[in-house]
Amino acid sequence: MPSFDPRSVPIAGVDAHLPAVPLDAQTPAALRERFARTLDWMPEVVLERSFTDRAPSHAAVLVPIVLRERPTVLLTERTAHLSQHSGQVAFPGGRSDPEDADAAATALREAWEEVGLEARFVEVLGALPTYVTGSAFIITPVVALVQPDCVLRPNPYEVADVFEVPLDFLLDPAHHQRHRLQWEGAEREWFAMPYADGDKERYIWGATAGMLRNFYRFMIAP
């Protein structure tokens, strides 16, 4: 992909016509119950247009829901010098290692390595369908509950900042922007969910926003 500022791409639409996930569905008990059920639903965003010829790699991310009075989702801002997705908002996560037992093991290991989140503070609920990025990563999002008294120690080489966004903000499609860009004869489309965090704008877009959109679809399914 060319180097560009995604904020400069015009908004093609906002999904304010869709219902938000009810607050009573976002409690720890309700989240546990939902992941324990077998739901008939389909993810909305599963495959980005490829912009690389390298072999696909499996990866996993942790979608950490921090159990505050108003639950939040823990996110990171990647450092600017990284070769993949530098400077972007992301979940803790990364490439799977052969020693990892499953996607949850990858997500927990990467969360420890990136932000110092200890597994003893984490309750894994389950996984969402895989999301394939244009950079050829096959990502499994692992959703988990995180105790709010955890102490984080971000790795300064990989993580420029750690922050939290209210879960109810992310599960309200009135905050889901659609963007489109023509590049090399093809139209590329993505979601963005900008969040005002004090005097900072946390610009959540691309794969991270796509996985959150799928989480919304999972949570709103009957």
Rank of each mutant, 00 (worst) to 15 (best):
T130I: 05
T130N: 10
T133Q: 08
S135K: 15
A136V: 03
I138Q: 14
T140C: 03
P141F: 08
V142A: 04
V143H: 03
V143C: 05
V143I: 13
A144L: 07
L145E: 09
V146Y: 02
C150G: 02
V151P: 00
P154I: 05
P156E: 12
P156K: 14
P156S: 12
V159N: 07
D161A: 11
V162L: 08
E164P: 00
E164R: 01
E164S: 02
P166F: 04
P166K: 06
P166I: 09
L167R: 01
L167S: 00
D168K: 12
D168V: 11
D168M: 09
L170F: 14
P173E: 07
P173I: 06
H176N: 05
R178L: 12
R180V: 14
R180E: 12
L181Y: 13
L181R: 15
L181I: 10
Q182V: 10
W183I: 07
W183D: 15
E184S: 13
E184C: 10
G185R: 08
G185A: 07
A186R: 14
E187G: 03
E189W: 08
F191E: 03
M193V: 10
Y195G: 10
Y195T: 13
Y195M: 04
A196M: 09
G198D: 00
G198C: 00
K200N: 05
R202G: 07
Y203G: 06
G206Y: 06
G206Q: 04
G206C: 02
G210D: 02
G210K: 02
M211Q: 13
L212P: 09
R213A: 04
